[in-house]
Amino acid sequence: MTVQTEPATQATALPAVHRGGRATALGLTGTAVVLLAMAALPYLVDTGVTAQLVKLCYLVALASMWNLLTGYAGMMSMGQQAFIGLGAYLLFVVNDHGLSVYTGTLVVSALVALVAWPLSYLAFRLRGGYFAVGTWVIAEVVRLIVVRFDSLGAASGRSLSDVTADPVLRRAYTYWLALAVMAAAVLGTYAVLRSRLGLSLQAIRDDDTAAGSLGVNVTRGKRIIYVTAAAGCAAAGAVICVNSLGVASPTQIFGVQYSALMVFMVVIGGIGTVEGPVVGAVAYFLLDKYFAQSGVWYLVVVGAAAIVVSLYLPRGLWGTLAHRTGFAVFPVRHTVRFRAAS
């Protein structure tokens, strides 16, 4: 059948549709400036600073991926640690085969995407809360499989075999790698949201039955995002591995605490916005930096922050700001601009 267009009145001139306009260019320019400045840091500051920023970078990447899954595609995953852990462990494999850890990170995310694709068929049999628990179970199963390999250190973790020897250079490379992964996660999310897929995803999140009835291929959209988020988390896992020169324990890298962390960052920052996860990751990073030494008080502070934000700012820090002011660094909304009535 052919598509039938223009059913009714043609008389009036239509208003124009904008999408961020100048703000889009401004936001991207600003982002480029920030990223370039960050890239220059190894030449400017002590390695201690960039070493800390590595953590911030992978936190931003993880938060962005969870936001893409849950905030945009409506898939509440509690099992992204499956892909973080796989990313770290597959890095051993490709590194043992002679790939540098830097190109290895890229290869590893592609490999994990290949693993996530069939896993999605399993995960998508479950919905809502069952999906969340199911993804967690999948992560546990992946961990149990991984620790069966003695070459991967079995239950006790292992170190990378081939890393850059010079420590100063290695730290700089690690930092750049982390920065690249973060940039790819944030800008990748933004690119997805500006594409046709992004709009369809939000439709799926809000009402998948209605989305289907408007021609959206619901399962396909979800699968693309599930696989993308897996690849992103794998890259973050590889960064974590490179940063600590290995994996201390499989229970840690496959730990559900990563999911808790992602939820925390995204909810604090603002779910369903591109900027929110970045803000949330920075907030967590700062809390962690200044309170991590305070023992039990650390948990009290983190818990209190979560409670205060979810009670008083349910849209999160960035979400609230964006909602009140209409401001966006990465605008995705379409705006119909009517000519002023004359």
Binding site: L199, D206, H334
Partner: peptide
């Protein structure tokens, strides 16, 4: 789609 605009 509650969080999208009418146009979207």
């Amino acid at each position: 789609f509650a969080d999208l605009t009418v146009f979207e």
